[in-house]
Nucleic acid binder design. Structure first.
Lengths: 220, 220
DNA sequence: TTATCACATTAACCAAGGCTTACTAAGCTA
DNA sequence: TAGCTTAGTAAGCCTTGGTTAATGTGATAA
């Protein structure tokens, strides 16, 4: 795995992320430009570069996909990012919504040894503070069978294992409800009109969660 | 404190380091060029930049000195470097000779919160694995009262707190003796002819240490 | 089946950062 | 004060990552 510039790494991340969020696994120039806050022309240039480095499959006017090495690179960055997030959250008592920004910097530190030792130090965690799976060194990604809270039948119990949205506004709203990874919930009622869900927490509190909240909470 | 580029930070570090190694506290362009592995002309350019940012006192053809803010910046970088070294050594089991390179990268991460939390996590250490003082957030630099093992009177007890030499041959020899940071020693006898010192460890072992070893062990 | 339009590419160019060489200026010292 | 060492200036190179404006492509709707 060659050494990439910070920007190159961020493009790889962006492509990976888009690939995994829009079902098809194929990514357009415009989507990348959008994500990277830049112009399509800039993206085309970068795609040529990444293609020369064999990190992406790229043909003019066609959609983009990561190659095997490209995917490996993306997973390696993701691994670093999520391990650092876990470290910040578990050991340095950063809050949920603070970890991302700093991890964004730390993920670009180049040292295989560092990241393996960090993994060991953290006890080989499988999921980061947001419940996202931490890729293994070989690229395996732990698969979660988690479902969306919005899919849970009323009467059923479940446990929050992850969040889909990881932006501060969402995480802060969860904090207001006192909801966090690991919380056990019982779904009391689902309101058909707006998709709201009423749940009971372990502390016997009743909370009404909007549909938008419910589709961003992953539970088991 | 403004945000500096990686290179700017490294120049500041270099100037600080030269300032503190050549008694006078004044630094020449050539010395900086030497340390930074670059040409004097390049240094002149950078000095103009750093001077504009008020980090150094600089007048053409005169020696260079850090200003108060410049010194603060240097200490802040040093603080980060040494805290990361401590983390790598103490928590991730990096060896003495491995910490520097990685800390060199980590020291450029920008997050005041990160470094304060790291400090707290490590228990507010005063010295890094090499026994160098870790500057405080306000810029104070702990003064070590540690003495060389070679200065300890026979009969006195002491504890190893740092090593002066950090090269692997020395460290490997210490490992053979089973000596490490924190070991308590009793100085039994000092041999005047070659300066050797005979010590007793906590495990009641007796070890004879050469003068060269003794002048590279810092004890309290 | 072709006209259209969104999307992608190219070309030319910009700016910052960090560096170089070649030349010139300063200042110390004999 | 000559001569050497040291430092500064000017001009310019290269890389990275960006821009705009113009042009090319190809899916699709009429």
């Amino acid at each position: 795995m060659q050494l990439l510039s910070l920007t190159e790494e961020n493009y790889i991340k962006a492509i990976y992320s888009i690939q995994h969020s829009n079902g098809t696994g194929e990514v357009s120039v415009n989507e990348i430009a959008e994500k990277m806050q830049t112009r399509p022309a800039t993206v085309t240039d970068m795609l040529r570069k990444l293609s020369e480095k064999a990190l992406i499959h790229y043909e003019k006017y066609k959609k983009v996909q990561l190659t095997a090495p490209g995917t490996k690179t993306a997973l390696s960055i993701l691994r670093k990012h999520r391990l650092w997030e876990t470290f910040l959250y578990q050991r340095l008592n950063f809050s949920w919504d603070e970890v991302h920004e700093v991890a964004e910097q730390l993920e670009h530190i180049h040292s295989a040894k560092l990241i393996e030792r960090l993994d060991e130090f953290l006890g080989f965690p499988e999921y980061d503070p947001h419940g996202d799976p931490i890729p293994k060194p070989n690229g395996d990604v732990p698969v979660s069978t988690a479902k969306l809270l919005s899919e849970i039948k009323s009467g059923d119990k479940c446990k929050i294992v992850a969040v889909k949205d990881t932006t501060s506004p969402f995480l802060r709203q969860l904090q207001r409800y006192n909801l966090t990874i690991g919380c056990r919930l019982t779904v009391l009622e689902r309101l058909p009109f707006d998709g709201s869900i009423i749940v009971r927490t372990e502390k016997e509190e009743q909370i009404q969660l909007s549909e938008k909240i419910a589709v961003n909470l992953l539970v088991l």
